[in-house]
Design a protein around this nucleic acid. Structure first.
Lengths: 161, 161
DNA sequence: GATAATATGGACATCACAGGTCCATAATAA
DNA sequence: TTATTATGGACCTGTGATGTCCATATTATC
């Protein structure tokens, strides 16, 4: 139950791309140097971000990456879902998962209720928890973190340039 | 980023142990039959739950498992943490993780601020999200799910016995 | 006390996936 | 034309989830 390193790389890379003083088209060399990860590997991650419309990429000399939309419109949830996927975190694997309701019905000879009772109550709780997580991640954007960094005095030297 | 099947098994097993009409000491056979998982594998999971004080186990004939404390005092968070571990879901792997603040300081020749600025802001957001998840999981217990199941008419046949 | 039932723990097997490298190819600027 | 840069496929490796099997310890029952 851990976020992958790729998510870490992606978030930090985007944060770098969002720095206001930077020219557009930041190359993979600069990014990978910054994050201390190989160009090869980071490329894969950036490709995913591109395919999902988070960044734009320009090949060729002086090419590189830039945000595809304003940093305030890139939420943590966006990034997490691109990298980690969109399946739910918990899925009840039990074919009798709906036992909480079905047990009784089977023994009664009744038909399983197909409506909304056929939901696993355990899964329901776990999904509720995931929803809380998503809500929070949706409220935080690349821009909001950048703002906090600037406010704390980070990136000052860069701003001076 | 998925919960393991073990978490699924553990939660369902505990829910079964909490059923009010059952005698104490439910054997691994009954549990594994219920969950459609091998006795071997479920044993490992139950052992973990025992080591963490969630259930008690009695070996020998007519032995089995029972809850070690009232179902209302066993939260989803308890179970998730036993099975999935207690590490945080996100850890910033970047040695310059605190770049948001350090970059400026390095270039200024200042010393990195050791106080609380040395926290990765990305990690801070991710930890905040995890906190939301935990809060929700702590509010839901084996008993609360059991209550909902009973209310919906589950376990009726069992209650009749 | 003997026996059957039950939990425990170690060793092992298998498979998927995270994390990462390498290379051939395409696109672009100078 | 050449150097630079991104893209995508193939491949490698270690780790962890999932699961099996067996030897051992503990307990109830006869």
């Amino acid at each position: 139950m851990q976020y992958s390193k790729s998510t870490d790389y992606a978030l930090h890379a985007l944060l770098h791309l969002a720095r206001p003083e930077l020219r557009n088209n930041v190359g993979i060399k600069e990014l990978s140097g910054m994050l201390e990860v190989s160009e090869s590997y980071l490329s894969k991650i950036m490709s995913k971000l591109r395919q999902d419309g988070i960044v734009r990429a320009v090949p060729g000399a002086n090419g590189g990456y830039e945000l595809a939309r304003p940093a305030k419109d890139i939420t943590f949830l966006d990034v997490v879902q691109v990298i980690e996927g969109r399946q739910q975190m918990f899925e009840c694997s039990n074919s009798r998962s709906r036992q909480h309701r079905l047990l009784a019905e089977e023994e009664d000879g009744r038909e399983p209720a197909p409506s909304r009772g056929s939901e696993c109550l355990v899964e329901k709780v776990m999904n509720g928890a995931e929803l809380q997580l998503h809500r929070y991640l949706r409220e935080h954007t690349i821009q909001s973190v950048l703002d906090e960094a600037l406010q704390r005095g980070g990136f000052q030297a860069a701003k001076k340039r």
